[in-house]
Amino acid sequence: GTVKVQGITIKVPNPDKAYKIAKKLAKKYNLTVTRKGNTIKVE
C-alpha cells in the first residue's frame, strides 16, 4: 500500500500497521487520516 503525507507518498507493506501509525501521528499533529484500501492519506 501507500501512505500519503502532505503530498509525499510512501509505499508500505502493511497498510493496517501503517494506518495505526498514521492515526497516532495525525492525533499528535492534528491531521486527518483517510484510508482507501492500501492507500493511506494524511492531510
Rank of each mutant, 00 (worst) to 15 (best):
G1A: 07
G1V: 10
G1Q: 06
G1N: 06
G1P: 07
T2L: 13
T2Q: 10
T2Y: 14
T2A: 06
T2W: 15
T2E: 11
V3W: 07
V3F: 06
V3L: 12
V3D: 04
V3G: 04
K4P: 06
K4D: 09
K4M: 14
K4V: 14
K4H: 13
K4F: 14
V5F: 15
V5S: 05
V5P: 04
V5A: 05
V5H: 14
Q6C: 15
Q6L: 15
G7C: 15
G7S: 08
I8P: 01
I8E: 01
I8C: 15
I8L: 11
I8D: 01
I8Q: 03
T9F: 10
T9S: 10
T9A: 08
T9E: 08
T9Y: 11
T9V: 10
I10Y: 08
I10K: 03
I10R: 04
K11H: 13
K11A: 10
V12A: 04
V12P: 04
V12R: 02
V12L: 08
P13I: 12
P13E: 09
P13N: 13
N14Y: 08
N14G: 03
N14E: 04
N14P: 15
N14F: 12
N14M: 11
P15Q: 03
P15V: 15
P15K: 06
P15L: 15
D16M: 12
D16S: 08
D16F: 12
D16A: 07
D16Y: 11
K17H: 08
K17P: 00
K17C: 15
K17W: 14
K17V: 12
K17A: 11
A18V: 10
A18H: 01
A18E: 00
A18L: 12
A18C: 15
Y19E: 02
Y19S: 01
Y19C: 11
Y19K: 03
K20C: 14
K20Y: 12
K20M: 13
I21H: 02
I21Q: 03
I21R: 04
I21L: 09
A22G: 04
A22W: 15
A22N: 00
A22P: 01
A22C: 13
A22H: 01
K23M: 13
K23P: 00
K23E: 06
K23L: 14
K23Q: 11
K24S: 11
K24C: 15
K24T: 08
K24N: 07
L25P: 00
L25H: 01
L25V: 03
L25N: 00
L25I: 07
L25T: 00
L25R: 01
L25F: 08
A26E: 04
A26R: 09
A26T: 02
A26W: 10
A26Y: 09
K27R: 11
K27Y: 11
K27W: 07
K28D: 02
K28T: 03
K28W: 15
K28I: 14
K28L: 14
K28N: 05
Y29H: 04
Y29M: 05
Y29S: 01
Y29D: 00
Y29I: 03
Y29F: 10
Y29V: 03
Y29W: 09
Y29N: 01
N30Y: 09
N30W: 11
N30L: 08
N30D: 04
L31K: 04
L31M: 08
L31E: 00
L31T: 02
T32C: 13
T32V: 13
T32I: 13
T32K: 13
T32W: 10
T32P: 00
T32A: 06
V33K: 01
V33Q: 01
V33P: 00
V33W: 02
V33S: 01
T34Y: 05
T34H: 04
T34K: 09
T34W: 12
R35Q: 03
R35N: 02
R35P: 01
R35H: 02
R35I: 07
K36T: 13
K36V: 14
K36A: 09
K36C: 14
K36L: 11
K36N: 10
G37Q: 03
G37M: 03
N38S: 07
N38P: 03
N38Q: 06
N38D: 07
T39E: 11
T39K: 05
T39A: 08
T39Y: 10
T39L: 11
T39F: 10
T39R: 06
I40D: 01
I40N: 03
K41P: 00
K41F: 15
K41C: 15
K41S: 12
V42K: 04
V42P: 00
V42Y: 04
V42R: 01
V42T: 04
E43Q: 12
E43R: 11
E43S: 12
E43N: 07
E43D: 06
